[in-house]
Design a protein around this nucleic acid. Sequence first.
DNA 1: TTTAAATGTCGGATTTTGTCGGATTTTATA
DNA 2: TATAAAATCCGACAAAATCCGACATTTAAA
Lengths: 282, 282
Amino acid sequence: MLKKIIMEGELGVVIGEAESGVASITSILDMQPDVVLIDLLMPELDGIETIMKLRKEDFQGQFIMISQIVNKEMVGEAYENGVEFFIHKPINRVEVQSILRKTAEQFRLKDSLLAIRESLENINPGKTMQRKQSVKEIVLSILNDMGIIGEVGSDDIVKAMEVLMNESERRTQLPPLKDLYEAVAAKLDSPKVDIKKESKAIEQRIRRTILAAINNLASLGSIDNTNPEFEYYAPRYFDFQEIRHQMLHIQDSKFDSLKVKINSKKFLQVLYLETLDKYKKQ
Amino acid sequence: MLKKIIMEGELGVVIGEAESGVASITSILDMQPDVVLIDLLMPELDGIETIMKLRKEDFQGQFIMISQIVNKEMVGEAYENGVEFFIHKPINRVEVQSILRKTAEQFRLKDSLLAIRESLENINPGKTMQRKQSVKEIVLSILNDMGIIGEVGSDDIVKAMEVLMNESERRTQLPPLKDLYEAVAAKLDSPKVDIKKESKAIEQRIRRTILAAINNLASLGSIDNTNPEFEYYAPRYFDFQEIRHQMLHIQDSKFDSLKVKINSKKFLQVLYLETLDKYKKQ
DNA sequence: TTTAAATGTCGGATTTTGTCGGATTTTATA
DNA sequence: TATAAAATCCGACAAAATCCGACATTTAAA
């Protein structure tokens, strides 16, 4: 994104990228860019530490720091260690262009050469790493990836997984779905619910939610079949021929969409095993 | 505080202060300072509006904007309206000195004359950057990513999320939308509002806002379907087939764009769960 | 002042959801 | 292997919820 802004704005030539502060040091010393764009928060060696190491190695280029301001002491420290400007998250094109232009003007740089780092975009949720995810969170995250978190059956699916995960004996195979749905129904607070009836309602809700997942993933796959979510979920959670059939329908209405077969058992089984796996691994 | 930093650092002569955007205009036009330090968020007339008015009055000085960054569109707008630099809250001495020095160098100003405004200092406790994000801020950030922060229904969406988040029992499933919209309508200050009518107006505003989001994301996706915002939001918040359909329309006008189905329920459900998740995780 | 765009109003169109019985598939047993 | 029982999936329908579109009104821009 940042690289794109720079290129499209003709603000300079991007000569390199690095994945971390540590990794950037030798690159920067080798390439000697005029300007380094650097993230404040990075794994292993943060932005300021990276700058200090580079200064020790006698690097003379300018630094522009990318950050989401969290701490005024850090800002001060960054400036004291030679940062010329900050670019703030979320990144704004006009700000990037303005800052880079000013840097170029100030230091009379012509073909500004930049080393940048982008991977901070992926590391952002640092806080989640420090807390164990609940079953609910794990399941919701998976459903979110499939784009079905808003479906009315999602809640039932989450509860079903909670029921399974709360069993003292960790099974591999699911119990009969009817029993599972009844256990979910029994879990509801309301004592007036007819367990049998509610169980049938849960069954239908889950079925419809899984249909929504099929449609969503098929739509995704028909735009870009290398989409990560499509690639991961479509073949694992579903009978892939159903997804494929739906994709064909989306791309060409000759194909009848109304006959998609829903394999609830498979979906719930795979979801359960993945939830179990993720829960154990944290 | 800002005044103190300027004086102690011998960064210029503070020639005046004003209590609001409106009040500053005549002062600034009278005094014609070289540099105006101005808050982005002010009562009555905000920083950008103040700048625009001053430009209309042919004011030629430079602007440095003081702000807590919340919105990249606003940042962009500020730069486009002639802001040279941002100073970020909480105010850091080194940053102030650095920015003012750069401004002076850039414009060859000697006895920089500044008009400043301090009263925002009293509204904003210095530690705000380490404060928990409000529900509003979380929601606005998400809406911002979708490019719909200026849409008329955004405010309603924020209020709806606040209503939900303020419930003592944290639900997973939304209440009936009609009830939710009525709760939002009831939350308005004006006692004369017809709740039923306002609720219907809220419904339509939200609907139109979601349509705008679909169009934005479809535009993004048709340019680059690996765009991070597109990849994240399009399949999760919307029926992806609708996004896909709109993308096809954008790329080829043979496809009718007028029949996009708006799934408000899904949008609000996903937004709620994401807001809840982010709120809990901070 | 006029025109176009944005927003509100309101009744109706369409979809969603729960219910329930049956169709189909899978499993176990003779 | 055939059959019966169990399990899973399915579809139709009515009530409730949600979505929709046309037109009126308001607002903003020319």
